[in-house]
Design a protein around this nucleic acid. Structure first.
Lengths: 190, 190
DNA sequence: CAGTATTAGTGACAAATGTCCTCATTGCGT
DNA sequence: ACGCAATGAGGACATTTGTCACTAATACTG
């Protein structure tokens, strides 16, 4: 069942009592989304925290020319939300879409804040997550500047093997900031 | 005096009692660094939190070919540290160097953690800082993918005017992930 | 104040990457 | 099962960006 995935995940990360888990669950809404469904659209204000129990999501942004750039993916046992809008309360420039049929758990922002206050272990988990995310993003900035297209591609396969083979190549290109052409060139020079 | 800059900064951000400020100050060590001095070097473990009272620092990383890439700058009333090493306790891939003669306040990691525990206002300030930093970094990832060299340059001037005119151009190039040649081309096509 | 290091610019050329288009194949929805 | 949409590849060409080498101006240091 969908919530078990979260429970297992949490218990792996920190000490949660059964009551903690029940409380967390009580505020969660389970949602099934099918491939290509939007969970969240540009212009909306992000008022939810999302946990992916099954499937795969993408957070992306569209530029003035209509090209889209994937900021990050979230597969099973990953959290997803648009932090900027979530924190500032401003309309978001990003969208969240399901790449596969997925199952997610959703909490309202206020409820999640309440849970963070009530359950120290949850706070610890989320804080460590943020830190890791920050480190990963900074690393990505460095890689995007210092690595060739080919290196970026190889690194992506290495560091995200589980996700890589579930993605159409144009999404890999979008994530890496490359054109499809460049990507297909790289692949045929290996 | 150096510490006053911090006090003013903090009082602008949140409510601090006089005792709070005295406590924060009591753990701080003031340091003057001259242009080109390193505050922190690759390979070391980052065990300090730094506040820039005066001057300008850069956090950068060198790749295998010896090219360096600036991750971020920190001028007066900015915090600086290498979060990754600071959090993980692992040797850092980054260095911190003074671009101008600067004055900084330095706290030991343990002391700063203690201060965060003792002074809720400080925690609030630092947390909000992290969030802003996260948002800015994510935005930078998007810009690095979606914008041309020229757009990146224009955006940098717009968003960091105060820092821009204190930097040699090759550092702007390094921050933007461009070659010096590209940057000078851009500047002469305006 | 001399001398060295730093900085900005540029020409010639090479390499990387992008754009636009076409085509074949796969796979999904009705 | 059929048909359209999505996917992956690639040819031809344009554009961007980088590399290397050199010059000139400026700024800093002893």
């Amino acid at each position: 069942m969908t919530f078990d995935t979260l429970a297992d995940y949490l218990l792996e990360k920190a000490l949660f009592t059964n009551e903690d888990l029940v409380l967390i669950k009580s505020y969660a809404v389970m949602k099934r989304v099918t491939k290509r469904d939007f969970i969240f659209k540009t212009g909306e204000i992000c008022k939810h925290m999302i946990f992916v129990s099954k499937g795969l999501l993408r957070l992306f942004r569209v530029d003035d020319n209509g090209n889209d750039y994937i900021i990050r993916f979230a597969s099973e046992t990953s959290w997803m939300s648009e932090r900027e809008s979530y924190l500032t309360g401003q309309p978001s420039n990003y969208s969240i879409e399901a790449i596969e049929n997925s199952e997610v758990l959703i909490w309202k922002k206020e409820d999640f804040r309440y849970l963070l206050d009530q359950i120290p272990a949850l706070k610890v988990v989320m804080k460590s997550l943020l830190e890791k995310n920050q480190i990963a993003t900074q690393h990505r900035v460095f890689t995007s500047m210092s690595s060739s297209a080919e290196e970026k591609y190889r690194q992506f396969i290495e560091t995200q093997p589980g996700i890589f083979n579930r993605l159409p190549l144009h999404m890999v290109a979008s994530y890496l900031g490359l054109s499809r052409k460049t990507l297909s060139r790289i692949r045929n020079t290996s």
